[in-house]
Design a protein around this nucleic acid. Structure first.
Length: 644
DNA sequence: GCAGTCACG
DNA sequence: ACGTACGTGACTGCG
């Protein structure tokens, strides 16, 4: 066994563990669909197979724009079909779009009793849907081998790519797509020189057929791993059913008010100019304010700003300079007029660079909307992540930030509906810890931070002060992340001794939480793995050799994982129920964004009253926990919601 | 390609 | 005595 591999050290899977069930050696036999008769045989195989893996070959990686070039299928191990699509030139048979053959394939895929499998199925489902091959009526969820492998081992070395997995489990050295279409630039980055459309059939067919076969074998292996690790409910009831929901969300995209952003950009660039010359004036010379190094030199050396000696001490071990982060600058804001200008400069250039000037370039010209990617296999806890662009970190805190949010609008004649869970992680904690005090507070729909304060300070709820509530809020959130009394003191301004007394009082009052934290740490020590309500695992390296700091960190990770991860599962369940209800009700409403505890929808005006109640119901009844779930909803012309 | 910074839950 | 809350993604400067 290769002990250098983290996944294997964790006692997960050796490539040969399921070797008998999944023979590895035999290469793929390629069968080209070269006639109507061939194609008919493929459909017959799809219809009577137990499992069908498929893959799409396209002209690009953007599912909202690329063209379908070919399809590959595997209905039994070792055999892969390739179906060319819309091939020009008469010498080869190919599947035509809008043809009876394509309709027949759609019917087969939607009615077969087989479970369909694909690697990174979101892409393939989106592409197929755009080419008249929507898979919406197959009663079994798509088996996504990438999502499955991420649940099986989130720390898989070598990544989750199909080729890497085939190498790892089957010892295959598969053809990389780069060797077919080539990539310009360095390190395989940059634009491909060709598209799959330009690759000769003799090369494309075996390449694509091998991908389908590899996916088929990987699905078979994954099923065994899933059983062994207890991941069936997570995948069958949450992750796999979520796939078509995410496809719809990504295809829907979100509307952006471009003229508004353009005006905002002009205004803020002007302001930035003014600030910049003022900063250079105070500094006595021009320098790049965006360079932390140069800025640090100006602030701490030229202007001599500091709160204490430690600020300006050299860091001989490395070449680091004193930090210029906003938190630091805020502490210094009254010592020199340059400081607030630097803070504002930071804020404006961040907002302009990341959102205001970036978003317009990301609008899809075909749809006039921005299509983010929701990734299901990045975050260890099971949250979604969003990228290209990341629409889960659109500003909201500052005044200017809210103006950025106003650029997110709805279709003509529609409104933006935003619904967010109230304190979902604390409700999840109440459930996981089965804590009587926490459950009672939520059952009475109390202001949880105020009622925590009342409990800890042992005062009536209506006499809790703003400060007391603030400390309680800090501790409520901190607990879920494994915060220490030391951090509470640092973060709240309390003395170390007071913070310690405060936390002791909290654990006395919420003994169930204390029990759960201790139990989770014990599980970490003994089993080196923790999991969520639906069984998503968070493995840890074997004990031994960690420093005390690393042990503490692992403890925080271990207690945070079930809380954050279970909350993520609840939100996903709500998305599933909502998506289903919107379809069943024939609504034109689009689910557009998910931001961890918030769902955003694009709702036609006439549907607003009904959809508002639908959303509330689906979110609050996504699952039955020991604490009730609560959703707050606002509706308005843009994402900076106005009315609730 | 990494570090610093900062946007969000 | 330890080190200072969990989880992300994007941009910029710099070597």
């Amino acid at each position: 066994m290769v002990m250098s591999n983290f996944g294997l050290q964790l006692g997960l899977f050796d490539p040969g563990d399921f070797g008998e069930a999944v023979p590895q050696g035999a290469p793929t036999i390629t069968r080209l669909a070269a006639s109507d008769a061939d194609f008919a045989q493929l459909l017959a195989e799809i219809e009577r197979a137990e499992d069908v893996a498929f893959d799409t070959e396209t002209t690009g990686v953007d599912m909202t724009r690329c063209e379908l070039v070919g399809l590959s299928f595997c209905t039994r191990e070792g055999h892969g079909w390739y179906v060319p699509v819309e091939m020009d030139g008469a010498e080869h048979w190919s599947l035509r779009l809008n043809s009876p053959q394509l309709a027949a394939l759609r019917h087969s895929l939607n009615t077969t009793r087989a479970q369909l499998a694909a690697h990174n199925a979101k892409f393939d489902l989106g592409v197929l849907q755009r080419h008249g091959l929507a898979i919406t009526h197959n009663t079994r969820p798509i088996f996504d081998t990438l999502i499955a492998q991420f649940a099986i081992d989130p720390f898989l070395r070598g990544g989750l790519g199909l080729k890497a997995l085939a190498k790892r489990y089957f010892g295959w050295d598969m053809t990389e797509i780069a060797s077919l279409i080539g990539y310009g630039g360095r390190g395989g980055r940059g634009q491909p020189q060709l598209s799959m459309r330009d690759v000769p059939l003799e090369l494309a067919a075996p390449y694509a057929a091998a991908d389908a076969d590899a996916t088929w074998r990987l699905a078979a292996l994954s099923r065994l791993q899933i059983e062994k690790l207890g991941l069936r409910r997570l995948l069958d009831e949450v992750e796999f059913p979520l796939l078509p929901v995410l496809v719809d969300m990504e295809m829907a995209g979100v509307a952006i008010d471009l003229p508004y952003l353009s005006r905002l950009s002009d205004e803020l660039h002007q302001r930035l100019q003014v600030i910049e010359s003022q900063i250079h004036g105070y500094a006595g010379r021009r320098f790049n304010i965006g360079s932390p190094q140069q800025l640090s030199g100006v602030l701490y050396q030229m202007l001599g700003l500091h709160l204490n000696f430690a600020d300006v001490q050299a860091h001989p071990a490395d070449n680091r300079v004193p930090s210029t982060r906003a938190h630091r600058l805020t502490q210094l804001k009254d010592t020199h007029p340059i400081v607030p200008l630097v803070v504002e400069h930071r804020e404006l250039s961040k907002l302009l660079g990341t959102y205001i000037d970036a978003l317009p370039t990301l609008v899809n010209p075909n749809t006039n909307r921005v299509h983010t990617h929701f990734n299901q296999a990045v975050v260890i806890t099971g949250r979604l992540s969003s990228s290209n662009p990341n629409l889960q970190n659109v500003p909201i805190t500052t005044e200017v930030g809210r103006r950025v949010r106003q650029a997110f609008i709805a279709r003509e004649g529609a409104q933006v509906l935003s619904a967010d869970y109230s304190q979902i992680e604390l409700r999840v904690l109440a459930h996981l810890a089965d804590d009587a005090g926490l459950k009672a507070a939520f059952a009475r729909d109390e202001d949880i931070h105020a009622s925590t304060a009342a409990a800890i300070y042992n005062v009536p709820l209506n006499t809790v002060t703003t400060d007391q509530r603030g400390y309680a809020k800090r501790i409520n959130y901190g607990i879920a992340y494994g915060m220490s009394s030391y951090s509470l003191a640092r973060g709240s301004g309390m003395s170390d001794a007071n913070a310690e007394r405060f936390m002791a009082q909290y654990f006395k009052r919420f003994a169930g939480v204390k029990r759960w934290l201790d139990g989770t740490k014990r599980k970490l020590m003994t089993e080196r793995v923790v999991d969520t309500l639906y069984g998503r695992r968070r493995p840890f390296k074997p004990a031994g050799g960690q420093t005390p700091a690393e042990v503490r960190r692992d403890e925080r990770l271990a207690v945070n994982h079930p809380v954050q991860g279970t909350a993520a599962e609840v939100v996903k369940l709500a998305m599933l129920g909502l998506h289903k209800a919107l379809k069943a009700g024939g609504y034109q409403t689009l689910l557009t964004l998910q931001v961890h505890d918030e769902l955003v929808l694009d709702v036609p005006l006439e549907e607003v009253p009904a959809v508002r109640e639908l959303v509330r119901h689906e979110m609050e009844h996504a699952i039955q926990l020991a604490a009730p779930l609560k959703a707050d909803i606002s509706v308005g012309p843009n994402w900076d919601g106005v009315d609730d």
